[in-house]
Write a protein that binds this DNA or RNA. Structure first.
Length: 604
RNA sequence: GGCCCCGUAGCUCAGCUGGAUAGAGCACCAGAUUCCUAAUCUGGGGGUCACAGGUUCAAAUCCUGUCGGGGUCACCA
């Protein structure tokens, strides 16, 4: 049940009635306006701009339209009063009985409350994390990982059919470096003194066991071979060893992908999916052999002017065409990504989401270009060629790119520099072990994704109450506690009992109580808004506000005992208030579950 | 230099895609605990929404320009 949609439709009905009676022009639209909660609660429960939006097409004064609607809506059995204010706002106050019914509806829906049919089962593929398989995850990966995971939860809650995907960059130079690094550890495991790890190889100790395992499996056999013979073996071995580390790291954050897509698989086993994807673009006339201009703004000594295979991404507004082949004849990373997205589209997804780090922003236009090219969609730009959004539209499927900004590390307020050499490299696992899964997840979401995030270990660990996650969890635990205490007096009042679900709510008339109901009434709309905007942080902020309202109402019982939830001499009132608490707790619980954060029954 | 993001209270940030008198946390000041968990609550001070124009009934929000901070710019991934 969505109060806003409900009132919207009643306003529409009122407009229709006025039209049929000739009070409004017959061709006047009956949608396109908003119903929202006014900032100032004295204005009423709900406000609409309907009169102002329709003033122009109706060629009437906003206030005149508003007054006609006022007369209509006042007759509604659920409406207590309607007023016209300011430039033509329609302020509506609903009868308490309406809010009481809402609480009952929420309790009846239970965990389904707030779920939406917005997605209508549309298939969505969300690609996130996609860290190179060259070592354990570090803190920097954390934000994108949590963001992607929660976005996936959120879209699923809003009715989309979601696939969570990880693109494994197991081809290219980085994994060759990994292989050489492991080979060194392999020699070490066979008793060789390898000395210091040379510049350019991965120095981490985590490769030691990998080298040892390699020695166990192959003995000294690999030592006899030239690099080009052992490299593929060692590379595959190393990746097979690293990926479980990464999965473990993700599991520590409660993140689980449905699909791990291997970049190397694109060209394995005789089939060349990269070539196929490029050919598909070629068929559209978007591939050509040509030269690129030397990039401006920085001196590049190694720049070489040569003819190469290019994708015409300028066709979609990118600032340069993009190379698909390296000078050694192998595919560029971009070429692999072209094939990967081609593959995703062929798997039938209607909506693709890529979660990028801020350092990959420059990569966005070419990716949008690729997907627009494959789907027949467009990359919307304004007259000056500026990108309107990081998304394609209008094609058989579309791509949206979400960018999470950098995480700046602090310790006791001082910037904290990560360095592998100085031993201050912080792995994701370290952070989760030290701080805990829930605080990390919540912290990563308690900021708009595009905003840089300061992450202070000392703050999040030592003064853990600074972390808002405890505030929200405490609200949930407090609700559970109220039930525990209430049952000592009224044993029949357990959370799912008929006595609570069917409680007579007519005495819930305190302003704070009604305010709590209004806050949970907003939940479905919040979910839809956050899902449409693909902004999970909204949910974190919402839960904080809702928790605040609950803590506030609880505390009012300190000064005014008659407001306490448990009234030992009044079972009817207690049941009513517990019903409200149960509904609030339900929303917090549902919200936290979308965030992937635990909703504890107790904080002790 | 091109492109992209950001600029809101002393600090860290929200602001529901254009709504009414711009909010929260931290910090500071003053209070609340024989009382359902004080990991909590109540009150107070604190603002040229970077700046200047424009669009309209209405702009922190959209457009243009300027200033400041950050990111990024073939052949890496």
């Amino acid at each position: 049940m969505d109060v806003f949609a409900e009132i919207e439709s009643r306003i529409s009905a009122a407009l229709e009635a006025l039209k049929s009676e000739g009070d409004l022009p017959a061709d006047l639209p009956t949608s396109g306006f908003d119903v929202e909660t006014p900032r100032d609660p004295t204005h009423g429960d709900l406000a609409s701009n309907v009169a102002m939006v329709l003033a122009k097409p109706a060629r009437m004064k906003p206030r005149d339209i508003a007054e006609k609607l006022q007369a209509r809506l006042s007759a509604d059995a659920d409406v207590a009063s309607v007023s016209v204010a300011g430039p033509g706002f329609l302020n509506i106050t609903l009868k308490p009985a309406f809010w009481h019914r809402l609480v009952q509806a929420i309790l009846k829906e239970g965990g389904g409350y707030g779920r939406s049919t917005l997605g209508q089962g549309k298939t969505v593929d969300i690609e996130y994390v996609s860290a190179n398989p060259t070592g354990p995850m570090h803190v920097g990966h954390c934000r994108g990982a949590v963001f992607g995971d929660v976005l996936a939860n959120l879209l699923a809650f809003a009715g989309f059919d979601v696939t969570r995907e990880y693109y494994v960059n197991d081809a290219g130079g980085q994994v060759d470096v990994l292989a050489r690094s492991v080979f060194l550890r392999y020699r070490e495991a066979l008793g060789e003194d390898i000395g210091a790890i040379p510049e350019g190889l991965y120095p981490g100790d985590y490769l030691k066991p990998v080298g040892e395992a390699l020695a166990k499996e192959h003995g000294a056999a690999l030592l006899e071979m030239p690099e080009e013979r052992w490299l593929p073996t060692v590379r595959a071995f190393a990746i097979d060893a690293i990926m479980p580390m990464i999965r473990d790291d993700l599991a520590a954050l409660n993140i689980k992908h449905d699909v791990f897509f291997s970049e190397a698989s694109l060209t394995r086993g005789g089939s060349d999916k990269v070539k196929a994807a490029i050919d598909a673009l070629r068929a559209k006339g978007l591939i050509y052999e040509g030269r690129l201009e030397k990039p401006k703004g920085h001196d590049d000594e190694e720049w070489e002017d040569r003819e190469q295979t290019l994708f015409k991404s300028t066709e979609f507004g990118d600032e340069a065409d993009r190379a698909l082949m390296k000078s050694d004849g192998s595919y560029t990373y971009f070429a692999g990504d072209v094939a990967y997205h081609y593959d995703k589209l062929q798997r039938g997804y209607r909506h693709l989401v890529n979660v990028f780090g801020a350092d990959h922003i420059g990569y966005i236009p070419r990716m949008l270009a690729v997907v627009a090219a494959f789907t027949g969609g467009t990359v919307e730009r304004d007259a000056k060629g500026k990108l309107k959004s990081w998304a394609t539209s209008g094609g058989s499927a579309d791509l949206a790119i979400k960018v999470v900004n950098l995480v700046k590390l602090f310790k006791n307020g001082e910037p904290y520099k990560m360095s592998k050499r100085a031993g201050t490299f912080v792995t994701l696992r370290d952070v989760v072990d030290e701080v805990g899964r829930d605080p990390v997840r919540f912290m990563m979401l308690y900021r708009k994704e595009l905003e840089p995030l300061d992450f202070d270990f000392a703050k999040v660990t030592e003064q853990s109450k600074d972390n808002p996650v405890f505030y929200v969890q405490y609200a949930h635990a407090r609700a559970a506690s109220v039930f525990r205490n209430a049952q000592e007096v009224f044993p029949e009042l357990s959370p799912d009992s008929p006595a609570v679900l069917g409680a007579d709510l007519s005495r819930l008339d305190d302003a704070g109580e009604i305010d709590l109901i209004k806050k949970i009434a907003f939940f479905p709309r919040l979910i839809e808004g956050a899902a449409k905007a693909e902004e999970p942080h909204r949910l974190a902020f919402y839960l904080y506000e809702l928790s605040s309202a609950l803590h506030g109402q609880w505390s009012r019982g300190n000064d005014s005992p008659h407001l306490r939830f448990i009234q030992a001499d009044d079972g009817v009132m207690t049941a009513a208030r517990l019903a409200l608490i149960a509904a609030v707790q339900q929303v917090i619980s549902s919200g936290l579950s979308v965030l992937g954060v635990e909703a504890p029954e107790s904080m002790r």
